[in-house]
Write a protein that binds this DNA or RNA. Structure first.
Length: 822
DNA sequence: ATATACACGGATCCCCTATTTCC
DNA sequence: GGAAATAGGGGATCCGTGTA
């Protein structure tokens, strides 16, 4: 017997003698690597129709117990059945819990249960690991007190021998540990350099590894006099073997890369295959396995392979300022560090190669990946703990599926049987639904305003879901004595006032978020910040989740009503501000901007208190702060105020720009920087004088052809295969040309181009922008007219119009003068 | 395949009419 | 003079990218 404290990191399962077992890899509190073997009996539910007599139920149970499935490899039996009082979609039900020997035949067993008294079957679509975590409550990244027996070398077909761990144990008892040590995973970051992106055409030239007190570059190319971390080998095969051994020796819990699901890992796997060796990275000596489908994932047994890009894309990207999620840009923003300035792609094609620089470059990528991982770890870890799915999944999860997993892992607390995933037909039906009305956006009056107080509802949609009890389970098909009355398709729709599972869960999350935020404000530390972040991310996903066609708990009436109640409440608040002498200048979804005018900040806060007292449930309006100036402009197509476009400056001079071209990556640097500068000048000075002078210098510079091409490059993302475009925009045309040149044109790539003057003026065909678009390295004179009329003027015009300045005339006037000069 | 709606604005597409070109 | 080609206006649509 062994007693130890244990933390689960990775989960796997295997069949032995027709029974499934969970294999849980983790660490003991003394840092030993442990594998626990444990099991549960798989089960699913048969929900009975209301009013079935006990005697009848007994008879059904007996019949179910006799079910046997004979397949080629095994016989699956029903082990036992139990009758339970459960809830399904909030309604009390009687349900038979059906235990079976093997999960693989669950669908066949289910098919046998077609008695008229059975309403439906459920929880047959949860995988073994999820079920195991729910049943045994052995959650990832929580500590447990384990009592277990050591396996000898023969048990379970010799599993103890095949695994590279310190101990393999069979669980006797496992209990949560109240006070637990801090867990820091052993992490190794890796990155490869290849002579071609296609493993069929190129080789792996080098592989770098970086961990705590550990740095290595494995290569068979070049020589290093400078760097001790470079290790040379004879050929690719030898290098790969050394890399595999190094990973095995270091024995990390987590192997992380950047885009390693999509490139590094599959590339290595293919190169290993071509070298006729095994890429034995798993703790059992197994090779990585890849999921099929569009989003490929690479799994390594016993070590968690985390593609950091996936996590950053799903969880962080909306909070990042970067224009792409490239390692360089993300590192620069989050770490203030960059990649080594070296063109690896060019190097693979060059005759002479600066190998020392190449090694540095390769290692730096692993260093950045490692540092980014460490920065993201508190968030990854908190999200994992909240949704209770293995790290491999939680690090790749989208927020909607994170929310669903939270529901799945919490259902038992509510005595709820879990709803099934929708069938394809259901999904198609849901997708065909018309859109419901969303947020309210206030039509601003263009102008420059002073002393603007900003307010926003905290967790607007989340708090609406809680306050009005909006969910699938609480949705009613008709009005009851007391119902919340929402709206869908312009008709009332009803929700019970008896608290439902999802609203209750949301309430807990919002409360936990509030606590984590308060804790962070009191004592700023990465853990409380990550907790606050994680709860915020998941809470924000709940509203979208209920309106998402793929959701188990899809409820478009709830989603529509959430938007409806949000609109009602914000409109009411706007009204109250107006009635109390505060002019509202803007509002979008959950925020309200008012000008103080003759009122003081204190007056506004007093009114806020009053508003808050009248808000339903947990809804709350917060004070965001005071802005000294703000500008709203006219829509370009029309003479009224543009929504979702404004700029503010606070007392400290900090500027907040929303929606303007400045923040849009599909405008050229010149237009963005010019607009940014002009907004800055206007907001700081409160007038247009300096801004106008600045604008004139830029226009002159442009006309004098002093602007470098790099400031004129327009970047547009390729969102689908070139052939699928109905409209041949400039970026599509450029992408085609790139393809002809043999350059990569993958979906998701940013296509870069600039607009040049056409060489052949005789071509009278109406000049399309795409015909003038050129690749950045294609020579040409930039098209002055285009950059003036399609970039600078459009981005400035409406700002200057606030001061009654006609930018177009300004620019044209100059142009005429130039023509005369000419 | 993988949360929602609202919104802006460039560029193309496409239809229509006016003008130019050609025989 | 009449048919065909071309230019240009303008709305619809496509497309990408923001805000919340």
């Amino acid at each position: 017997m062994v007693d130890l404290n244990f933390i689960p990191i990775d989960y796997d399962y295997f069949d032995f003698n027709g029974t499934p077992f969970a294999k849980i890899i983790g660490r003991s509190d003394t840092g030993k690597r442990i594998c626990l073997i444990d099991t549960i009996v798989p089960y699913f539910w048969a929900i009975l129709k209301p009013g079935v007599k006990d005697k009848k139920i007994k008879a059904i149970q007996k019949r179910i117990q006799d079910i046997q499935i004979h397949s080629e490899k095994r016989i699956t039996k029903v082990l036992k059945t139990e009758l339970h009082e459960k809830k399904f979609l909030e309604k009390p039900v009687k349900a038979i819990k059906i235990f079976i020997t093997n999960l693989k035949d669950i669908h066949d067993v289910r098919a046998e249960i077609d008695y008229p008294e059975i309403d439906k079957t459920r929880e047959y679509d949860l995988n073994f690991i999820t079920k195991y975590i729910i049943e045994r409550k052995v959650k990832p990244l929580f500590w447990y007190k384990v009592n277990a027996t050591m396996l000898d070398n023969q048990e379970f077909g010799g599993i103890a021998q095949s695994l590279n761990v310190d101990m393999v144990l069979k669980v006797e008892t496992i209990d949560t540990l109240e006070k637990y040590p801090k867990f820091v995973p052993k992490v190794l970051a890796f990155d490869i350099e290849a002579s071609d992106l296609d493993p069929g055409k190129g080789e792996t030239w080098m592989i770098s590894l970086y961990g705590k007190n550990y740095e290595k570059v494995f290569t068979f190319k070049g020589k290093s006099k400078k760097h001790k971390y470079v290790q040379n080998y004879e050929d690719e095969e030898e290098m790969l073997e050394a890399f595999i051994k190094a990973v095995d020796d270091y024995d990390p819990d987590i192997l992380t890369g950047y885009f390693s699901d999509g490139f590094d890992l599959p590339f290595l796997r293919e190169r290993a295959k071509r070298n006729k060796i095994k890429l034995a990275l798993g703790i059992d000596g197994s090779q990585p396995t890849f999921s099929r489908g569009a989003q490929r994932t690479g799994k390594i047994k016993g070590r968690v392979h985390i593609d950091l890009l996936r996590f950053i894309r799903n969880a962080y990207s909306q909070y990042l300022q970067t224009e792409t999620l490239s390692l360089n840009e993300v590192s620069n923003e989050l770490l203030g560090e960059k990649k080594v300035n070296f063109d690896a792609f060019a190097a693979t094609k060059a005759k002479t190669i600066d190998w020392e620089k190449f090694y540095e470059y390769n290692l730096q990528d692993s260093i950045l990946t490692y540092k980014l991982f460490m920065k993201a770890w508190p968030d990854i870890s908190e999200i994992t703990k909240i949704i209770q799915e293995p790290l491999f999944n939680s690090s790749r999860t989208t927020m909607a599926s994170a929310f669903e997993n939270l529901v799945i892992h919490s259902a038992d607390k509510f005595n709820e049987i879990i709803e099934k995933r929708p069938h394809e037909r259901e999904i198609a039906e849901r997708r065909s639904q018309p859109r419901y009305v969303g947020a309210f956006v206030f039509q601003p009056v263009p102008g420059l305003y002073e002393n603007i107080a900003f307010f926003d509802f905290s967790s607007m949609y989340g708090s609406v879901i809680v306050s009005y009890n909006l969910s699938r389970g609480t949705h009613q098909d008709r009005k009851h004595k007391s119902s919340f009355i929402g709206e869908y398709k312009e008709k009332p729709t009803y929700f019970s006032k008896e608290k439902g599972m999802i609203p209750q869960l949301m309430e807990i999350i919002i409360d936990k978020r509030r606590l984590a935020k308060a804790e962070y404000n009191k004592d700023p530390n990465p853990i409380s910040k990550a907790r606050s972040n994680a709860f915020k991310l998941i809470a924000n996903a709940a509203y979208g989740y209920q309106g998402f066609f793929g959701a188990r708990y899809y409820c478009i009436e709830a989603a529509s009503s959430t938007a409806y109640f949000a609109r009602e409440n914000i409109k009411k608040a706007i009204d109250t501000f107006e009635k109390n002498g505060f002019k509202v200048v803007y509002s979008d979804t959950d925020s309200i901007a008012t000008v103080l005018g003759k009122k003081s900040e204190k007056d506004a806060l007093n009114l806020l208190d009053k508003i808050n007292k009248k808000l339903p449930g947990i809804m709350a309006l917060d004070y965001e702060g005071l802005f000294t100036r703000g500008i709203w402009v006219t829509k370009r197509t029309g003479d009224f105020g543009a929504k979702k476009k404004y700029a503010l400056i606070d007392k400290k001079g900090k500027i907040k720009i929303r929606g303007f071209e400045t923040v849009r990556r599909d405008w050229c640097r010149l237009a963005r920087d010019t607009q940014n500068k002009i907004l800055n000048l206007i907001l700081t000075t409160g007038d247009d004088k300096q801004a106008l002078e600045y604008l004139k210098t830029i226009i002159k510079k442009l006309k004098d052809r002093k602007i470098p091409i790099k400031d004129l490059i327009i970047k547009t993302q390729l969102k689908k295969p070139i052939s699928e475009y109905k409209s041949q925009g400039p970026h599509v045309t450029i992408a085609k040309r790139m393809k002809e040149k043999g350059l990569p044109t993958d979906i998701g790539m940013l296509i870069e181009y600039y607009i040049a003057e056409p060489e052949n003026f005789k071509n009278k065909k109406r000049a399309l922008v795409r015909d003038k678009a050129r690749l950045p390295d294609e020579p040409g004179k930039y098209d002055l007219d285009y950059y003036l009329n399609n970039q600078i003027i459009p981005s400035i015009e409406n700002i200057m119009a606030v001061f009654k300045i006609n930018t177009k005339e300004l620019a044209d006037g100059k142009k005429q003068k130039n023509l005369f000069d000419f």
